[in-house]
Structure formats: C-alpha cells, structure tokens
Amino acid sequence: MFYSVTPQFNKDVPLFHIGQIPVRLITLLIALHTGVMVVTSLLLASGRASWINLLLYSSDAVWHGQVWRLVTYAFVSLPSIWFALEMLMLYYFGRAVEGALGVKFFSLLYVGLIFLGSGFLQLLSLTGASQEMSGAQAVNFAIFAAFVAIVPGAQFFFGLAARWMLLILLALSSLQLLAGHQFSAMLLFITESVGAVLFMKWRGFHELFWGLPSFSLFKIMKRTKAPSSPVKSSLNRSILTTPTPLKTNASVSKSIPSPKAVLSKPVKKVQAEAIDIDLLLEKIGHAGIASLTLEEKEQLEKARTALLQRDRS
C-alpha cells in the first residue's frame, strides 16, 4: 500500500484465529490502543478527567512511587484523524516487523521502546525540569524505523527509498518540535528511532545505509524462503540463455574449459558476478523482469552474452 514491495517472512504466524480471521500481536496492540482511546473519551465526557491523569507519564509522580505511569502513558490518546492514521501505519509496518522478528522479539521491541521513552524523560528530569507525556507517537514512529532497517530500499512515493523517507520524516518532525520549543520531545523522537534501529541491528538487520537499495530485502527473502525447485531454477536460467542446438561429442569436449582457463579468472571476481546475477534473478522472480533498472538490464545482457560466448568456444 505505502511501499512497492511487501516482504514476506516465515515468522509471520498468527497467535490464533477468530473464524477465518488471523489475529496477530500487532492486531491486539491496535485493539488495546483503540479500546483505551474510547474509554478515555467516555471518561472525559463524564467529567472524570482525574482518572485519566493517573495514567499519564509524570516524572514527579514516578519519583513518588507511581511507577505504572512508565507504561500506561503510551496507551492514552484522544480520538482524531491523526490517531486513525497512526494506527493504520502501525498495522502495516508493525505487521512486517512482527513477521521478521517473531512474536517474542517484537513484544520485546515494543515494550522496550515504551520503557525507553519514559526512562529517557525520567533521566532528563534529573536536570531539574519536570517531564510529562502521553500517547505513543514516538514509539509507533520507531516501529516505522524498525521496518526501514529491514527493507531500506523499499520504494515509497515517487520512487523514494525507505531509508531517505525515514530521514526526511525524522528531520521534519524534529524541526517542528524544535520550532515549538519542545526540546525534550525532539530528543525523545530521535532516541526512540535510533533505539529501534539498534535493536534491529542486534537481530541481524544491519544494512540500513549500506549496500544496494534493494540488497537487504532480497537477502532476507533468500534466507527465509524455501529452496527453489529444479523446475523453477531452470526457468530462471532460461532468461539468460537462448535455446542452442544439440552438440556433438567433439563440440561438447571443446566447450569444457580447461583447469588453466578456469584458474586464470580471479576467484573473487567470479563469486561477485555470481552473487549479482543471483540477486537479479531473485528480483525477477519476485517482481518480474519489468522491475529491473536500465543498469540491471545491461548487467543481465552482459551475463547472457558471456554465457553464449562460452557455449560457442
């Protein structure tokens, strides 16, 4: 929906089903956020705002022993169109992150981000300034940062890579908070995003700003999907080669390279070329040959020409 390629992972397993509807952890999180939002609205409408204040984060209250505020603040929100958009983005990006990490580590990530936010503000309160907060905007944006750490080359609007979309949104949010003199909120926003990226790096997703735009995506897909069948492999190879007539024994013996000829080509170069072609084949198999860029098509054509020349020799 928001991006051009949706990753699929073998850890994307629902917790349970309600009829034919799969229920995942991200579904329960959104239900919890929405349920508390409805209860908050009803309590405010009935004049019981003091009950809601008991759930908001307050550094002074935490120092006085009300430690539950370190967690409950994240689920207190008011109804608005921004809340609906926030939940929509949390579902799409959170589902991908949950599928990549599994329920256990996704739970650890989300709860850890909640404690990271309140713990960071609690430390800031040691400077003498009281800190208050409600809602999980920074936490949910950090889930988007975790998604970008998985597929940094996924394309958004106008072909913009996810890694640059993350930097742009983070910069705009920081400038907005800075202009409003909300320095603590700005630092919190950045800290949550960096924390999410570091967590994903700990779990093995560490190519956010390195390598080709789509390299990490295909590396993850190659690691998690089942081995391809011989029939599929032969179909993929048919893209590179054209049918050639049957060869006689003499021509077959000529087409077999000598050990000297094989060793004359650097091993690292051969391995690098093989990896590049494998990545292109993965991309074609997932999104079709039309998804290749002009440079990738030229690389594919060079590989095809090299194979044809090898067959003729």
Rank of each mutant, 00 (worst) to 15 (best):
H17M: 10
H17K: 13
H17L: 07
H17F: 14
H17V: 08
H17P: 00
G19I: 09
G19C: 10
G19S: 08
Q20S: 15
I21S: 08
I21K: 14
I21T: 14
I21V: 14
P22Y: 07
P22M: 08
V23P: 05
L25K: 04
L25M: 10
L25H: 07
I26Q: 12
I26C: 13
I26A: 07
T27L: 04
T27F: 01
T27Q: 01
L28K: 04
L28W: 03
L28P: 04
L29A: 11
L29M: 13
I30Q: 07
I30L: 13
I30W: 01
I30M: 12
A31C: 12
A31H: 09
L32F: 09
L32M: 12
L32N: 06
L32V: 08
H33S: 03
H33L: 05
H33G: 00
H33I: 06
T34D: 09
T34W: 09
T34I: 03
G35Q: 04
G35I: 02
G35R: 02
G35F: 15
G35E: 00
V36S: 06
V36Q: 04
V36D: 01
V36C: 12
V36H: 02
V36A: 10
V36K: 00
V36P: 02
V36W: 09
V36F: 13
M37V: 03
M37E: 06
M37T: 14
M37N: 03
M37P: 00
V38N: 06
V38E: 08
V39K: 12
V39Q: 10
V39R: 11
T40Q: 11
T40D: 14
T40K: 07
S41A: 15
S41H: 10
S41L: 13
L42I: 15
L43T: 03
L44K: 15
L44V: 06
A45G: 14
A45R: 15
A45Y: 09
A45I: 12
A45V: 12
S46T: 13
S46A: 15
S46E: 09
G47N: 11
R48T: 04
R48Q: 13
S50Y: 10
W51L: 15
W51Y: 11
W51C: 12
W51K: 09
I52W: 05
I52K: 02
I52A: 02
I52F: 03
I52M: 11
L54Q: 13
L54G: 13
L54V: 08
L54T: 13
L55I: 05
L55Q: 04
L56I: 10
Y57V: 06
Y57H: 08
Y57R: 04
S58F: 06
S58N: 13
S58V: 02
S59Q: 03
S59I: 03
S59R: 05
D60A: 14
A61I: 04
A61M: 12
A61L: 13
A61Y: 07
A61V: 02
V62H: 02
W63L: 12
G65K: 06
Q66F: 03
Q66D: 10
Q66Y: 10
Q66C: 01
Q66E: 14
W68C: 03
R69T: 01
L70G: 01
L70C: 11
L70P: 03
L70Q: 02
V71W: 13
V71H: 02
V71F: 15
T72P: 04
T72D: 06
Y73I: 01
Y73F: 15
A74T: 06
A74M: 07
A74G: 04
F75S: 05
